[in-house]
């Protein structure tokens, strides 16, 4: 029982938190800018590398170094939007998808030029699990940080979207950009705000992922499929649906390797990502609008 909690459920939640943070940004940008941003995973990865560099320069803790990285990533994202996305605002959205696809490769190869392809640890040394409930539940402190950071960021974004003027305007544009324009909402400002939120949450997801495992130039790409699956599961344009979707998919991926029948893992752990894909395919067939009635384009 406790083995199940310690080795499958808690790691599933950890992974789910990271997916949730990533999927949140994808769902927001998909809802507001109306395209699937393939470069989102690379922003995650880049943010983790920024953090790595700042840590090297200052010796700060990764979660502290993540803050200036978020600012850098947000600025970069605004620049990228201006250069590569804004020219296609009035074009068919598939042009934006292609542009984001190109950006994906550009960001990744730029990281390769500067950092090489070798993966490296963000935190050094082995972390001994801390014991809770007389040793029944145990997980390393870093998992606690991951949970807490995710909760803090979620609360902040929830506050932004439901309590602030710009956040409500973001939901309004997500709902109907045409009506937003007629209402006098400055759509370009809303789009900029969206990129800032998306970049910051992506950097958080990237840093947490690097803390949990390691820094890897392909980590963003590997996250792309589960993140899209989470966003679709929750319903596009439903940021908190995406969060739940991320948690469900993270847990489902880990639990798929649990020996439910006999002693062998139910699914070869190498196929974990397959779970995300399978869930996505089921949703696309059964209910493309997701669990929370998001948009279908």
């Amino acid at each position: 029982m406790w083995e199940f909690v310690n080795f499958y459920f808690i790691p599933g939640l950890v992974l789910g938190c990271i997916y949730a943070l990533g999927a949140l940004g994808i769902s927001l940008t998909f809802g507001i800018l109306r395209f699937a941003n393939f470069a989102h995973g690379e922003i995650m990865m880049l943010g983790a590398y920024f953090t790595f560099t700042i840590m090297g320069l200052t010796g700060w803790h990764p979660l502290v170094a993540a803050l200036p990285s978020m600012a850098l990533a947000a600025l970069l994202m605004l620049y990228l939007d201006r250069q590569f996305f804004r020219p296609f605002r009035d074009s068919p959205t598939i042009m934006l998808v292609i542009a984001s696809f190109g950006l994906m490769l550009m960001i990744r190869s730029a990281v390769w030029v500067f950092y090489g392809t070798q993966s490296k640890p963000l935190l050094r040394g082995f972390q001994r699990p801390t014991q809770y409930l007389d040793g029944a539940i145990q997980f390393p402190d870093k998992h606690l940080w991951i949970f807490l950071t995710t909760i803090v960021i979620m609360l902040a974004i929830w506050y932004l979207l439901t309590r602030t003027k710009i956040g409500k305007a973001m939901r309004a544009v997500s709902d109907s950009p045409e009506l937003a324009k007629l209402t006098g909402i400055p759509v370009e400002t809303v789009i900029r705000a969206t990129w800032i939120v998306a970049a910051c949450s992506a950097v958080a997801a990237g840093v947490l992922l690097a803390i949990d495992s390691q820094l890897d130039s392909l980590m963003g790409f590997k996250m792309l499929l589960p993140m899209f699956a989470s966003a679709i599961l929750g319903g596009i344009g439903r940021p908190f649906g995406a969060v739940l979707g991320g948690l469900v998919i993270g847990v489902a991926e880990e639990l798929s390797a649990y020996p439910w029948i006999g002693v062998e893992p139910l699914l070869n752990p190498a196929y974990k990502t397959g779970m995300a894909f399978a869930i996505m395919v089921v949703m696309l067939i059964w209910r493309p609008s997701g669990l929370f009635k998001g948009r279908v384009f």
Binding site: F30, F35, A36, F38, T93, I94, V97, F101, L224, L225, F228, A229, I232, N268, A270, Y271, T273, G274, F277, M280, V281, L284, I285, P288, V296, F297
Partner: peptide, 28 residues
């Protein structure tokens, strides 16, 4: 069959997904 009725973004996501799954299968 699954995504062609949806907008092209979904096909893009699904094709990148199937490529990744195929890679996993070929590897494992």
């Amino acid at each position: 069959k699954i995504c062609i009725r949806l907008r092209s973004d979904y096909l893009a996501i699904a094709t990148i997904g199937i490529a990744e799954i195929l890679r996993l299968i070929l590897k494992n």
